[in-house]
């Protein structure tokens, strides 16, 4: 039994260590999120504010191709509100009966409208740097939301011998400390309606939470199901262990 526990312990220690193999830039500090922990949920108000920041700032360059307007109902918007939000965007549909493509207001079932028609156009408009799609950004980076928050608040004057080309900026948390994106946020840039502070820090927190939701919209259902599954398995294991003990007690 000693051997067995030692073996399992070794395995348990090894797996996370080996999983965290890659990465080199400065590690973003760990943040306390509303969704952290095994019971964490998304803060709907923060999600709505984060969406507002995305809509008014980020969406000028960053697409979110995997999301549909209907998904915004998760943020606490009503069906009518979602319809109104979608209606502010224009999508190209068609061909119609005459074979022509035509523009129409977006519907809740439509995907988020991208700022550029394609990646080449996006690159061309941004000095050759492609602004990444944000649908999965919070899962596509190590320490996702912590990282996004850190980058948004990590702009500084160039340190040491970092040489910046025109159109490049210094950021503590980027690999090589160089980022093509100019500091996107400034205090007071987005007017919040719920009285939250309108600072870069608050914007960054809200948009990070929003992006986490965008990447993992089923997180709440996942954790809730998980708690039930774990409790069930614990109880079932307890019973089966008792059954086993009872059964084996008769052996000699």
């Amino acid at each position: 039994m000693k051997l067995f526990s030692a073996f399992c312990l070794g395995l348990a220690l090894m797996v996370p260590v080996s999983a965290m193999a890659a990465g080199d830039a400065e590690t973003p500090p760990k943040q306390q999120w509303h969704f952290s922990g095994p019971l964490g949920t998304y803060d709907r108000a923060a999600l709505q504010r984060g969406f507002q920041v995305y809509r008014q700032v980020c969406s000028a360059c960053h697409s979110m191709k995997l999301l549909s307007y209907r998904n915004l109902e998760d943020l606490g918007y009503s069906e009518a509100q979602v319809k109104a939000i979608a209606g502010e965007y224009t999508v190209t549909d068609g061909p119609n009966d005459e074979g022509e493509m035509f523009d129409r207001p977006a519907l809740p079932s439509d995907r988020f409208v991208s700022p550029y028609p394609n990646d080449a156009a996006a690159k061309y408009a941004n000095n050759g740097a492609l602004p990444p799609d944000m649908s999965l950004l919070a899962k596509a980076r190590k320490n996702g939301p912590d990282y996004i928050y850190a980058v948004l608040t990590g702009y500084e004057e160039p340190h040491g011998d970092t040489h910046l080309l025109p159109g490049q900026h210094y950021n503590k948390y980027m690999a090589g400390h160089v980022i093509a994106m100019a500091p996107p946020l400034s205090d007071g840039l987005v007017a919040y309606e719920d009285g939250s502070s309108t600072t870069v820090d608050q914007y960054s927190r809200d948009v990070s939470e929003f992006l986490m939701w965008a990447a993992e919209p089923k997180m709440e259902a996942r954790k809730q199901t998980g708690v039930k599954a774990i409790l069930f398995l614990l109880a079932f294991f307890g019973i089966m262990y008792a059954v086993k003990k009872k059964l084996w007690a008769g052996l000699h």
Partner: peptide, 10 residues
């Protein structure tokens, strides 16, 4: 349920 991407790569 609680760390589904821990063993994967971002």
């Amino acid at each position: 349920f609680f760390m589904p991407n821990a063993l994967g790569h971002p």
